[in-house]
């Protein structure tokens, strides 16, 4: 229903992010409608009219308890639903034999593959349906690895190596912008991630990784 909103998702864990997004969307949407209908109704019903005195009340303890506990419960449930996806995406990299090194600099992504000396500027090639482990570094300022269609984002911090992963379910060419302000060239710092079928990827690797990168 909201697919016109979010760009098409192509990664495995992106589905879980989208599911949570929609869940929160419906919960907050329902709360929004509830609060606004109530507020508008009160504004109309209790507008100033002659001859009526306002209700003299200082509150209602059962109501206070109810509207403390109900939101708290909903929020606790949302927390418990968020934890597994977070743990899966950021805390546990699935086993894989496919590694890519990404070093960000003002204002490019530099991509390298183990066993090859070649550096690719602003383009990454990976096979479909394969867990890709990214070793993310930066050589100057903080950048942010963002692939909207993978629902993936991770800052690249100079002085650190951060290991991330993704697995794409659909071959294609995906835009790869930098999402953290990194200087005057921040806007326009973007690359492309080419997701190939295994055969296409093998061919690309054979041609471009000097014959070594083929896995």
């Amino acid at each position: 229903m909201l697919d016109w909103w979010l760009p098409e998702n192509v990664s495995t864990y992106g589905q879980e992010i989208d599911w949570l997004f929609h869940l929160i969307y419906y919960i907050t949407g329902a709360t929004f409608v509830l609060v606004f209908v109530t507020m508008l109704a009160f504004i109309v019903m209790y507008r100033d009219r002659p001859g009526r005195r306002a209700r003299y009340t200082h509150g209602n303890t059962p109501l206070e308890i109810a509207w403390t506990i109900v939101p708290a419960l909903i929020l606790v449930i949302l927390t418990f639903l968020s934890v597994p996806a977070w743990s899966k995406i950021k805390m546990h990299v699935p086993p894989t034999d496919f590694d890519v090194n990404v070093t960000a600099k003002q204002f490019n992504w530099q991509v390298g593959y183990p066993g090859s000396d070649k550096v690719f500027l602003d383009e990454m090639h990976v096979p479909v349906n394969k867990v890709v482990r990214v070793h993310l570094r930066s050589q100057d300022v903080i950048h942010s690895f963002f692939v909207p269609q993978f629902r993936m984002k991770q800052d690249a911090v100079p002085g650190r190596e951060i290991v991330q992963w993704f697995e794409v379910m659909k071959p294609g060419k995906y835009e790869w912008p930098c999402a953290e302000l990194c200087g005057f060239g921040h806007s326009g710092m973007r690359g492309w991630i080419y997701v190939h079928t295994p055969e296409e990827y093998a061919q690309w690797a054979a041609e471009n990784l000097e014959g070594k990168g083929k896995k």
Binding site: E16, F21, F32, L75, A85, K90, P148, A179
Partner: peptide, 28 residues
Amino acid sequence: LAFVSMFVIGGLSGIFMASTPVDIYIQD
């Protein structure tokens, strides 16, 4: 009244960010 109603929207949109997996996407 505008404060109350706009604060409600600002508060509700904050819940998206509180959920870490959703925040991965909407951060920045």
